[in-house]
Computed example of a mutant assay.
Amino acid sequence: MSKKPIRLAVVVGSTRKGRIGPTVAKWFIEQAQEHGDFDLSVIDLAEAGLPSELSGPPKDGVYASSQVTAFAAAVAAADAFAVITPEYNRGYPSGLKLAIDSVYSEWHAKPVAFVSHGGFSGGLRAVEQLRQVFVEVHAMTIRDSVSFPMASEQFSEGGKPRDAEGAGIAAKQMLNQLVWWAEALRRARDDRPYAF
């Protein structure tokens, strides 16, 4: 275990009714807790209440809405992120894009990992697009990810993956990489303010 826990924010990216995202997130949170290097928080975009339109940059450090201010504080407090994303029509959900775009400097120089779910691709097309989005907010995406093709069939009624061993191995490898990047980038941010 690292000397100082990594503050990991798990972002649940779907806001649709009947979504499987919370089931995937619950399983992933258990994996992160077992890993032992993380102090966890959850940002469920279905509960964040973000406005449906961007409100622009903060004025004197304050955003136009209290919901964006609270979201910005949660993003700023994190050392790293795990984004739980579905794939809709070969892309990621619009609510997730709105959330990413709602804040800016709070994402800077922090690592982002992905746990995706969807149809046959398991959400990997959404992840590839999100990598391009996160680079624009100066975040570092982790190479390895966890994906669940046909996710509704991959989880039991109790919320466990049917291939628990395989999913667990993938999660551990991704979490190991996330710890490495989170520690390295946290040291770098402490050493010198991020320049862009």
Rank of each mutant, 00 (worst) to 15 (best):
residue 48 A to N: 09
residue 154 Q to K: 07
residue 90 R to E: 15
residue 140 M to R: 14
residue 32 A to T: 04
residue 67 Q to S: 15
residue 68 V to D: 09
residue 17 K to E: 15
residue 73 A to F: 03
residue 114 F to D: 02
residue 56 G to V: 02
residue 134 F to L: 01
residue 166 G to W: 00
residue 99 A to Y: 02
residue 110 K to P: 04
residue 88 Y to E: 10
residue 108 H to L: 06
residue 71 F to E: 07
residue 190 D to I: 07
residue 28 F to M: 08
residue 138 H to M: 04
residue 38 F to C: 09
residue 20 I to N: 02
residue 26 K to C: 10
residue 27 W to A: 04
residue 34 E to Y: 05
residue 180 W to E: 15
residue 4 K to G: 10
residue 163 D to I: 06
residue 74 A to Y: 03
residue 74 A to Q: 14
residue 132 Q to D: 13
residue 123 G to N: 00
residue 48 A to F: 12
residue 124 L to M: 09
residue 103 V to S: 11
residue 87 E to C: 09
residue 66 S to G: 11
residue 47 E to W: 13
residue 108 H to I: 05
residue 145 S to L: 03
residue 66 S to Y: 01
residue 78 A to M: 13
residue 24 V to R: 00
residue 32 A to N: 01
residue 45 L to T: 06
residue 181 W to N: 07
residue 17 K to C: 12
residue 147 S to A: 10
residue 153 E to T: 08
residue 104 Y to D: 14
residue 40 L to S: 10
residue 37 D to G: 09
residue 59 K to R: 13
residue 2 S to D: 08
residue 119 G to M: 05
residue 113 A to D: 10
residue 70 A to W: 05
residue 21 G to R: 08
residue 183 E to G: 07
residue 71 F to Q: 04
residue 75 V to S: 09
residue 120 F to G: 15
residue 165 E to M: 10
residue 194 Y to W: 10
residue 122 G to W: 06
residue 54 L to Q: 10
residue 104 Y to S: 13
residue 4 K to A: 15
residue 194 Y to H: 12
residue 86 P to T: 01
residue 55 S to M: 15
residue 39 D to L: 15
residue 65 S to E: 05
residue 148 F to T: 06
residue 121 S to F: 09
residue 161 P to T: 12
residue 21 G to E: 13
residue 100 I to H: 08
residue 91 G to W: 03
residue 89 N to L: 07
residue 193 P to T: 00
residue 141 T to W: 12
residue 169 I to D: 12
residue 149 P to E: 04
residue 53 E to T: 15
residue 63 Y to P: 00
residue 51 P to S: 07
residue 177 Q to S: 13
residue 59 K to P: 05
residue 187 R to A: 09
residue 155 F to N: 01
residue 28 F to I: 07
residue 81 F to L: 01
residue 194 Y to S: 14
residue 132 Q to K: 14
residue 57 P to M: 11
residue 149 P to I: 01
residue 154 Q to I: 01
residue 58 P to Q: 05
residue 113 A to Y: 04
residue 76 A to I: 06
residue 7 R to Q: 15
residue 186 R to S: 12
residue 127 V to T: 03
residue 55 S to W: 13
residue 187 R to T: 08
residue 46 A to V: 00
residue 6 I to C: 14
residue 162 R to V: 15
residue 136 E to G: 08
residue 25 A to Q: 08
residue 186 R to N: 02
residue 123 G to M: 02
residue 64 A to H: 00
residue 57 P to N: 14
residue 143 R to W: 00
residue 135 V to E: 09
residue 121 S to P: 01
residue 37 D to Y: 06
residue 57 P to E: 15
residue 175 L to M: 01
residue 119 G to V: 02
residue 27 W to G: 01
residue 98 L to I: 11
residue 32 A to Y: 04
residue 76 A to S: 13
residue 173 Q to C: 05
residue 54 L to V: 01
residue 148 F to Y: 10
residue 163 D to V: 02
residue 106 E to A: 11
residue 173 Q to V: 13
residue 131 R to V: 07
residue 116 S to D: 02
residue 195 A to K: 11
residue 14 S to L: 02
residue 87 E to I: 08
residue 95 G to F: 07
residue 172 K to L: 03
residue 89 N to C: 05
residue 38 F to E: 11
residue 178 L to R: 04
residue 28 F to A: 03
residue 44 D to P: 08
residue 92 Y to S: 10
residue 75 V to D: 12
